[in-house]
Design a binder for these strands. Sequence first.
DNA 1: GACCACAGTATGGTCAGACCATACCGAACC
DNA 2: GGTTCGGTATGGTCTGACCATACTGTGGTC
Lengths: 233, 233
Amino acid sequence: MGDGGWRPVKRTRTFEEVLTQIERRIAEDGLTAGDRLPPERRLAEQLGVSRSSVREAMRVLESLGVVSSQVGRGPDAGAVLTSRPETALTDLLRLHLGMAGLELREVIGTRHMIEHWAASHAASAGADTSALAAALSGMDGASTAEEFVEHDTAFHCAIADASGNRLVAAIMRSLRDSMRRYAVEAVERLGDTAILRADHVRILRAVEAGDADEAARAVTEHLAHAYPSLSGH
Amino acid sequence: MGDGGWRPVKRTRTFEEVLTQIERRIAEDGLTAGDRLPPERRLAEQLGVSRSSVREAMRVLESLGVVSSQVGRGPDAGAVLTSRPETALTDLLRLHLGMAGLELREVIGTRHMIEHWAASHAASAGADTSALAAALSGMDGASTAEEFVEHDTAFHCAIADASGNRLVAAIMRSLRDSMRRYAVEAVERLGDTAILRADHVRILRAVEAGDADEAARAVTEHLAHAYPSLSGH
DNA sequence: GACCACAGTATGGTCAGACCATACCGAACC
DNA sequence: GGTTCGGTATGGTCTGACCATACTGTGGTC
């Protein structure tokens, strides 16, 4: 206490400064997916820092799904701006889930929120249901739990896709990817997938019929069937 | 075509290998927030890689909100596991929003989904509304748009917090942080904040009364008032 | 002229080694 | 006992080098 308001002079690390400058350039120059960033060596020279610092900044941007680095030479080489929020989200959720910083309960609750919203929107918007039907028939042909979960994921992601909101869809996909392990466990614990299949049919019917409330109810009950221990939320 | 199933031998970069090993250690040893990772030099030696590669892996973990590096010596120094998904999410959304990889429409649509869900949950669960009331009075004392948005953010985040789902709350906070600029613009464009204030009061009343449907409706209309051009979703 | 082989070169990926700033630890000293 | 001060472990940064990759352009060959 009583530090008299003094603060350490230098808190920002070099690579953070590089990050903000790159971000500023992206905003000011209106760069978008597909555009290239200068090569690491040039960037280091222009910013007056070492290549290591530039590289650490690149790793951050890459982990956030903003750039993608390609070796070699030519138009496609170097650091190219991309737009992959879902891969970053997947890594983020998987790591925090593995660290017990997030509980499965919360992930499934979020999933419930998204599906509830997406299903009712898809129903009232009269969305295309061909992807849903395709995933459904894929589930019928599945013989293992992994295979079933694969098509189940496709089914539920298709609902999110039908919302027309890429951010919601990305969150959904990341949620499913990061909890794939638990989904397989849940299916194996259940033993029989007949109930789940019936739930899916009910959701599809409701969306086709344009009944938003029924679609939302069907989603809620489906999740309660899949994760009975978490039915609180 | 016809590559005969051949694949490049080495696709994974060194730092990615470091990442997977660290992730494995976290999972196997059950490490959680507060635990320390070995020092960079030791990790490099143990894994047989250079310190640069370890550092790049650290940058990724740090950007995903999983570790936090402290210089110096002692129990708190080094790479400490943390659980900060919200900072990572904020960076992710801000960057993708700035790159036009995501549209404001989608961010606000996601926000709508969360608030709709959180408000009805808070209402039916009879959540504590003191934080909401505090933010409300803060808005009354605000003189600038920035100040207003500050307390407005607190209000809406409090709704998300009341859901009891930290992932939902983290997404909400990140959404608000990354779109702060646009929120200020929206308030300034509106000129008068009377309508928004009234909306907030209505939401608070509904939550207090435990009326989930009214709370959800109030949230929907509030967003329509704040962003009239995006009322489609 | 069309095609192909090969050297050139720009790029990211990795490494080794050094130095700095920071912050704790502990011994020596009052 | 308290204080001072050097030791040391930590992350942060820099330099310079080398490697693997993949395009580029040149020159030869048919």
